[in-house]
Amino acid sequence: MSIVTDTTRSRERIVIPGLRGLRSGALALGSGAVSLAGAAAILGVLWAIAAWQSELPGPISTMGTFWRLLRDPFYDNGPNDKGIGLQLLASLQRVFTGFALSALVAIPLGVLLGSNRIVRRFFDPVVQVLKPVSPLAWFPIGLVVLQSQPNAAVFVVFICSLWPTVINTAAGVSSIPESHKNVARVFQFNAWKYLTRIVLPHSLPYIITGLRLSMGVAWLVIVAAEMLSGSAGVGFYVWDSYNASNFEAVLSAILFIGIIGLALDRLFAGAGSLFSYPEVA
């Protein structure tokens, strides 16, 4: 099992052909708004059935709460009563801190792994073992090392968002065509020129894919970490609302989490399309 083969799988995972087909089919029908309305209608019906069969609140009462949260997102009535906007900002701040730190480590580490076969052979088992570890298992480690619950949440984000960027960067660097390497050798590129004119430009699309996957992981992980860490953040908000039996707030928060996650993913997808060069045969 090498890092590289693993990556192709994880890269494929984000391009789901079904979704592509669904999207183009919807576009053929008319507009994105039509398909969105259709999806909302299907979701609403299923939701209504689920609510009728259980103690979950239905779509209408939830939308009421959703609007109420959206109208006043930034109120602050002390540590246990803050608006959803403040909670989301607290989470986003942790996500970006953990994500930025992990990118600072992951990109150089990925370049190192991708450019040196010996380093790769040494590190590959480490990555393979650490990658599948559940985010929640890292939480106590973060607590022990950092002695602070919010910082432990950042630590969990950091650790979990390392791997996709490391693996994708390594895949990019190790796939530099022989012809580019020969150019660097014949024209006497020094290490800096080789890194900035060949390694990084070639790997950039891979790195952005890695960052995009890492951001997805970070956003997944923060909710779980904040349920453990408490204090603030959207994960804390979900757990706190559950304890207060405010299921409308829980469901609304899920919607907010989903919408922000989608926006973050689109952001990186947009960045990725800025840096694609047509490879010339």
């Binding site: 580019h180 150019v183 024209f187 590129f189 020094n190 430009p201 070639h202 060069y277 490879e279 045969a281």
Partner: peptide
């Protein structure tokens, strides 16, 4: 080279200049 081996992310000018600058 047989396949020209230009760097696809650099302009024509930069492809030539980077080689001169390296040497």
């Amino acid at each position: 080279f047989q396949n020209h081996s230009l760097l696809p992310w650099l302009s024509v000018y930069a492809n030539v200049y980077e080689a001169v600058d390296a040497v």
